[in-house]
């Protein structure tokens, strides 16, 4: 049994120290040690993207990162993007355009879409589909997810132009 190691993560702006075995997966640390249950465990095999978080400014699948690798990392989850009193534009647009049905994939979808729109603030529909290819939804058929992301991009760009 390997010794536990101290790992420091900055999660949604807050510094958190945890003791964990190096083999612990980042998604398990977030959910079970830190109580951050927005990122979901879908397939746990790097396919579905439900566990997507932002790590050091990049979208990653938290089921395929050992917590030891994430030591020192800056992590943003869906909890860091918005809350029921102040939804993120993407969250509003997912509601508006019915971009979810059961909602299981939604935290990963929105966390990924958030980074996608930072990387490419004015994407075409094709670029949205390509950029979201690591996130699976078994309900929607993706049409409304793509619509929601394009609508959010448009709103964010208008807001920026007005400022």
């Amino acid at each position: 049994m390997a010794k536990k190691m101290q790992v420091t993560l900055t999660v949604n702006g807050e510094t958190r120290d945890v003791l964990a075995e190096p083999r612990e997966l980042l998604i398990h640390t977030l959910r079970e040690q830190l109580g951050i249950t927005g990122p979901h465990i879908g397939c746990e095999t790097t396919h579905c993207g439900a566990c997507t978080v932002d790590m050091n400014g990049k979208s990653v699948k938290a089921c395929t990162v050992f917590v030891a690798q994430a030591d020192g990392a800056d992590i943003t989850t869906i909890e860091g993007l918005g809350n029921p009193d102040g939804l993120h534009v993407l969250q509003e647009m997912f509601r508006e355009h019915h971009g979810l049905q059961c909602g299981f994939c939604t935290p990963g979808m929105i966390t990924r879409a958030h980074r996608l729109l930072i990387e490419n603030p004015n994407p075409t529909e094709e670029e949205v589909r390509f950029g979201m290819a690591g996130n699976l939804c078994r309900c929607t058929g993706y049409q409304n997810i793509v619509k929601a992301i394009l609508a959010a991009a448009s709103q964010m760009n208008q807001k920026e132009a007005a400022e």
Binding site: T46, G49, S59, V60, A133
Partner: peptide, 9 residues
């Protein structure tokens, strides 16, 4: 190759 998240790591 793979998808955006996988290509990031």
């Amino acid at each position: 190759i793979a998808d955006p998240q996988v290509r990031n790591l």
